[in-house]
Design a protein around this nucleic acid. Structure first.
Lengths: 107, 107
DNA sequence: ATGATTGTGTTAGATTATCTAACACATAAC
DNA sequence: GTTATGTGTTAGATAATCTAACACAATCAT
């Protein structure tokens, strides 16, 4: 109950701030979305909202871009990592480790 | 090195989002600043920027307001709590507990 | 080699968000 | 009864964001 980790995931940051935090131009940030590397939410009127997690992701992307990696390849890596993580998660579920950590306790 | 707690303190949230997160009107949020209950940063062109910590603070304020507590009193409580915390901190410093936790380690 | 894709800058026009300052007004404090 | 508190609302100005398009160099694929 100490520190709420969801802060890292909450999509509350506008693109201008993300641009400052990452050093990327807004153009780049939107383009990486177009290439399906990043998935901001939208406010009712259409403004993009990012999380700190997204910011970290963008920094990783920027680093890879500097190494010359193309967005397409970055996306492939991401998909691979995601599948791997899903396998890991299902395995954990089977073992009941989730219950051990987050399961029902005394009211 | 796991999760960066500074996320909670970084002033990256605009007033519109804060309004949504807290349920307070922008007018109220600005007024509480005027009453020195909250201290957003400003972007170069003057836009207010809040942290998650500020959002929590605002929720506390909203609760106290509902109980009928005036902003002046809330401010007094805040100042009292701040002084208390400072005493606690100085005491800790004297005991060297800070070093124990955050002190220099092997490179 | 040429034709397509990638990545980014820049521009234009429209819309949305935020800012300050002021007026209004009901309620509460002194 | 006057002053302070708390909030809504309005107006006008400025800033932030959006989409779509054009440009263009660099890279990739055939």
């Amino acid at each position: 109950m100490a520190d709420n980790p969801s802060y890292k995931e909450r999509k509350v940051i506008t693109i201008g701030v993300v641009s400052e935090l990452t050093g990327l131009s807004e153009r780049q940030i939107r383009y990486y979305e177009e290439r399906k590397l990043i998935f901001p939410e939208r406010s009712p009127k259409g403004n993009r909202k990012y999380s700190f997690s997204d910011v970290e992701q963008l920094i990783d992307i920027a680093n890879k871009r500097e190494e010359g990696v193309q967005t397409y390849e970055i996306r492939q890596e991401m998909l691979k990592a995601k599948r791997k993580e899903e396998r890991r998660y299902r395995k954990e579920l089977l073992r009941g480790e989730i219950n051990a950590r987050f399961g029902v306790q005394k009211e």
